[in-house]
């Protein structure tokens, strides 16, 4: 009897402590994520008034407009193009670098620092530097290699030039995650494989990749989500007068234009709601697919 009441007192105690400890996070999530999410969905069914006053309910009109808006359809294509170009390269290059930097080579902490550096720099500063590297008249790239390429104003390549900036910025972060994963792989697996006569490539494919597949999966999912939301590099690198903008602007960029430049918050919200659905769909697909290739011990 005595024992039981003690236990229940302890459970209540733990219960309270548990909530107290997660409360800051829950409040943060509510205020910064959940409430804005609901507000956005609410706005997408409205024609919004100035400064959040006088919203008029218009049902699905925003969605109707969206699906007949060529700019939106084009920007979905642009966003997908960017993601397909950015994610695989930033993951594969980072993985290779991580494997190389996991070996005992001279100055490896210097290399690790250098590759991680882009993560520390403000994205706006990165975009500004790249903007002038890419400049067709005065840019370092064209002048150094004596080229005449319109990196950021040729409609057929601009989106890939933007993706290169994304790859460059993400490699360091991905690499650090992979390095952490690689440290966990027991050395004896490689030794055993070595005794059995496996080549370096074979042990990479059959030991390294399966062993770090949970981290690989995590990186791919989060990077995909981030890539679908690309905005700052496009915003910083391209002007409204850029002939390639139409074939480069992402959904988030279009959302920014509608919401904050043209002040049509309702339509802007509709655009991000659609983006949210696309991202959820892709992530759900990945969650299903992971059962085929991710090994959790």
């Amino acid at each position: 009897m005595k024992n039981r009441s003690l236990r229940s007192a302890m459970t209540t105690n733990t219960f309270l402590w548990g909530w107290a400890l997660i409360l800051p996070t829950v409040i943060g999530l509510l205020v910064l994520n959940i409430i804005p999410l609901i507000a956005t969905i609410y706005q997408s069914f409205h024609k919004t008034g100035d400064f959040g006053k006088g919203n008029i309910f218009i049902g699905l009109k925003n969605f109707q407009k969206l699906f007949s808006d060529d700019a939106v359809l084009q920007s979905i294509i642009n966003t997908i193009k960017y993601t397909i170009a950015q994610v695989p390269f930033s993951v594969i290059i980072a993985l290779i670098l991580a494997v190389m930097l996991n070996k005992k080579i001279r100055g490896r902490s210097i290399y690790r620092t250098i590759y991680f550096m882009p993560m520390v720099v403000a994205p706006a500063a990165i975009a500004m530097v790249w903007r002038w590297l890419y400049n067709s008249e005065f840019g370092l790239i064209n002048n150094l290699f004596n080229l005449n390429v319109n990196w950021i104003s040729n409609p057929s390549i601009a989106v890939f030039s933007i993706a290169i900036i994304g790859i460059w910025s993400d490699i360091g972060y991905n690499m650090i995650l992979f390095l952490a994963g690689l440290q966990e792989v027991p050395k004896d697996y490689y030794e055993a494989a070595d005794l059995d006569g496996a080549s370096a490539v074979q042990s990479f494919v059959h030991i390294t990749v399966p062993m770090i597949s949970p981290i690989l999966f995590f990186v791919i999912v989060t990077r995909m989500i981030a890539a679908m939301q690309v905005f700052d590099t496009i915003f910083m690198v391209m002007e409204r007068s850029n002939p390639a903008l139409y074939k480069t602007q992402s959904l988030v960029f279009l959302f920014y234009q509608s919401s904050f430049v043209e002040r049509d918050l309702g339509y802007g919200s509709t655009i991000v709601v659609v983006l949210l659905m696309i991202i959820m769909f892709i992530t759900a697909l990945q969650m299903i697919a992971q059962k085929k290739w991710v090994h959790y011990n």
Partner: peptide, 18 residues
């Protein structure tokens, strides 16, 4: 060309004698 004016801006082109 439009892309040059857009990438560099009128002021920069003018300030560099272009």
């Amino acid at each position: 060309p439009q892309n040059v004016m857009s990438e560099s801006g009128e002021d920069v082109l003018f300030q560099s004698g272009k």
